[in-house]
Design a protein around this nucleic acid. Sequence first.
DNA 1: CAAGAATTATGAACCC
DNA 2: GGGTTCATAATTCTTG
Lengths: 101, 101, 101, 101
Amino acid sequence: MDMAFDMNEAVASRARQAADPDSNVGGIAVDRLRSVIERVERLEEERKALAGDIKDIFAEAKSAGFDVPTLKNIIRLRKKEPSEIEEQETLLDIYRRALGM
Amino acid sequence: MDMAFDMNEAVASRARQAADPDSNVGGIAVDRLRSVIERVERLEEERKALAGDIKDIFAEAKSAGFDVPTLKNIIRLRKKEPSEIEEQETLLDIYRRALGM
Amino acid sequence: MDMAFDMNEAVASRARQAADPDSNVGGIAVDRLRSVIERVERLEEERKALAGDIKDIFAEAKSAGFDVPTLKNIIRLRKKEPSEIEEQETLLDIYRRALGM
Amino acid sequence: MDMAFDMNEAVASRARQAADPDSNVGGIAVDRLRSVIERVERLEEERKALAGDIKDIFAEAKSAGFDVPTLKNIIRLRKKEPSEIEEQETLLDIYRRALGM
DNA sequence: CAAGAATTATGAACCC
DNA sequence: GGGTTCATAATTCTTG
């Protein structure tokens, strides 16, 4: 009985490959490939959820009377060093004056 | 005595505003403004962390011999309906044939 | 002799299609397809050339001691209405004061 | 008469600066600044016009029954070497097979 | 050559 | 619902 198994070993092997996520297909480590893809997809889901949360907060802020572009502007400024902000604003002022703006 | 209070109420009020995050400054609800900004910043931090994680996974995959652009391609495909993929590939083939590509 | 004509009509037709850019291939108006693609490619070339010119100007300006990010900032400002600039700067100032920035 | 020259030189200089676009303002070469900005703005205008032309062509193509995303796809492909296209398609196929897609 | 920034293109969201 | 603006994603180019 168990000998019949040997006869079809090649075929059985191929069948296992189809069923077994750990096998190689065309020289590709299928299990690792799946792992990479699924982990990235998972993280992207979380990122998307956070983006939704942020959007909700801005919508709420808008309802409360805040100006959303200005809020975003503030958040952008807060990422910079105060000295960097100062420096850029100074330069901008110089150029604006030079142009009479 | 209690009159002194009234006399300086305006000044005292301004002093409280400077110290009290719940007060209004220039018609702006400061506490709420802070809340909005800090919540968004918190979520953006998390988003950034996730982006870093994704980057790490791709770097690891690259080290393991995977082709990163192709991985991204696969992930993009998996977001679409199979019928949509099929449709687009069919159209592309038709146009390529028409142009002899 | 004249029968050979008919017999091979289908083949001959396909041969003509291969040679004739005005023919249809798979229901596609090949000549029009080519026209669309080549016109877009031509315009994209021009766009790319202009992008190069702009880059050159900024490089030259940088050599002359100008701060390129500030130059871009100025150009961005000049696209807006003065009233719009004023309005946005006022709002930003209010929020910054409210936050003690 | 020539003495008035010296006495009011500083004031006269400032007056000239205000009137003369070639002067320096705050250490900035105003004429050169203007030149840079206006040249860039000119080129950006042209770029914008070309972008509009491209948009028009795609709109026309859409009306004629072409699928615009596929057209863009074709144009992207035509920018690549045939060998590069082949290579990428092969890799994609391998990964898809490995994942049973 | 890799990493980072900057630009461009695509897709989504908002307003009309 | 369509058009326009805005955000994100990808590609490209520069710099270390």
